[in-house]
Design a protein around this nucleic acid. Sequence first.
DNA 1: CATAGTAATGTAATCGATTACAAAATAAAT
DNA 2: ATTTATTTTGTAATCGATTACATTACTATG
Lengths: 329, 329
Amino acid sequence: MANIQEVAQKAGVSVATVSRVLNNNSTVSPSTRLKVENAIKELNYEPSMLGRNLRNSESRLLLVLIPSISNPFYTEIINGIQNTAIAHHYNILLCETNSNPEREDIYFNMVKNKLADGVISMDPTVNMQKLIELAENHSIILCSEYDESNVIPYVSIDNELAAYHAVKHLIKIGNEKIALINSDEKFLYARQRRSGYERALAEFNLPLRKEWIYNTTQLDFQDGVQAMRMLLKLKEKPSAIFAVSDTLAIGALKEMNASGLKAPDDIAVVGFDNISFSNMTNPTLTTVAQPMYKMGCTAATMLINSIHENKVESILLDHELIIRESTMG
Amino acid sequence: MANIQEVAQKAGVSVATVSRVLNNNSTVSPSTRLKVENAIKELNYEPSMLGRNLRNSESRLLLVLIPSISNPFYTEIINGIQNTAIAHHYNILLCETNSNPEREDIYFNMVKNKLADGVISMDPTVNMQKLIELAENHSIILCSEYDESNVIPYVSIDNELAAYHAVKHLIKIGNEKIALINSDEKFLYARQRRSGYERALAEFNLPLRKEWIYNTTQLDFQDGVQAMRMLLKLKEKPSAIFAVSDTLAIGALKEMNASGLKAPDDIAVVGFDNISFSNMTNPTLTTVAQPMYKMGCTAATMLINSIHENKVESILLDHELIIRESTMG
DNA sequence: CATAGTAATGTAATCGATTACAAAATAAAT
DNA sequence: ATTTATTTTGTAATCGATTACATTACTATG
């Protein structure tokens, strides 16, 4: 691959002139511009981003941290991020951390090393301490997951309110014994959603029974299966279930099926996230939809603003309850 | 962020010495090494990859092209790629092309621009012409998808044989009227799987009826729903279905459910890919599993070998038929 | 025609690292 | 003590671009 020197030589001009043509900056006479353009074509020249980035000390690359690409929840968010980034001439680098701190470090280093201009983190297991440290010198946005200290700008939804709405819906359709399948409450969203669940119960004077709250370690289908298995063993079984993730809810439905139970007649189920599978289950799953695409766009816009040294404010977007068969009689 | 000059100054040595400590290359005396290491710590210095990469003209970044991260099929492959890459001190850049040629161009340019050292393409819609052109000067591996011309090394499975096995299984359990839900046959794998389907039918002297072959445009659930809807409208309905993707098969199951039909009693169904959700459906889905993790590892190993100028041969890995409820009486 | 003013191009420093080669410091041998 | 060999360190070129500043080539004006 040719470099700028060779192009300059072939065109019979200096490297500066070639660079000017490349960036169509200052005034280059039409005739020399043509000469340079021809030389570029002939040599099949492509400017090296390494050289350019080193000089400009920017990479126009954005890091997007996700714990696992297998979680369909991230799909639309990433689309939003990507479209927005590309519109601003940035590219994104999808980084799957698998919640592995070492892998996380690799990506943090890319930012420190100027190989990326900023980070959007969607990893709830991210080392917040390190991230905050990184945020002192670099642009970082939290998306969907965030930190209460509000040191790092975030975009998310009101998890407490969303959970409240979901549970209220279950109550409205006649349920009084409502279980919660929650993830590990070390995560902020898990604590917030539990709090919304509790608020709804309290508001209608329904009992809050701790055996109806099951915490999973992961968010896989299998965890939902396991949770439901436990709940069905109870003497007093719940009549409805709010799961904080569609994957858990789908696992729960699967286990109900295996036990010959039907939603919503035997047990009504509400999930969270509106992943594409949630419309493929039998019955289809009632769920809370987050404005994922918009969330992605917003996160990207915030990050790019932050990179350009603009002040950035955290944002909470609206959610929506999508009622399907698993809560419709 | 400090640079190597400042470290050198603080340590009272030359930049060369600092660089030597960084790469713990040649012999640096223990005492100066200590001085340098202290300076590095004090200044919180991290070497700039831009400078290093420019000088070494490598980025140690691998591009992984996928059409869409929403397809769960890629999950394990990517894990394999990532683990192998990291073991060799490479990082991967996940690139979602959305089958958009412009986006594809962006990523191709990153390679031409030395911002990435090589590419693993898993995008069946990739512009093969351009890719082959790129392969003249750069390291490229095709994974799962490939090109018959064999100009670019690939790792895949024997699609014809896998389809043959799947259909033979349907025949063995007593089906004679077997439909094929195939994707667009512009894709090589689609042609190969159809060919395996036809071979199995021919071997058992079963009729090959063109109304039992349905081609979808995409691989979404909805396409499977649509396909099944058409097949159920036929005067003579098939008794079994081989779908070339689990997503299609799951859509088909969904539509059967909606019509009050049960697998396998009314219609047996076999999918392809063994995505995690295929074990969550009701009934669970019989499917052809590809050794996805291994495929990813192999692809990464091949690419890294190729980057290091080693000769690389294409490889076909073994598949496995996983029999579940959708074909078990 | 001389000269000022503007447009076009070139020169060379710079970004932050690596490394061949040169030079200095130290150790070993006579 | 001098020479030689070896270890350690420094100097400066290099990777491929951008850009401030200098210089040259035009144009216009009196």
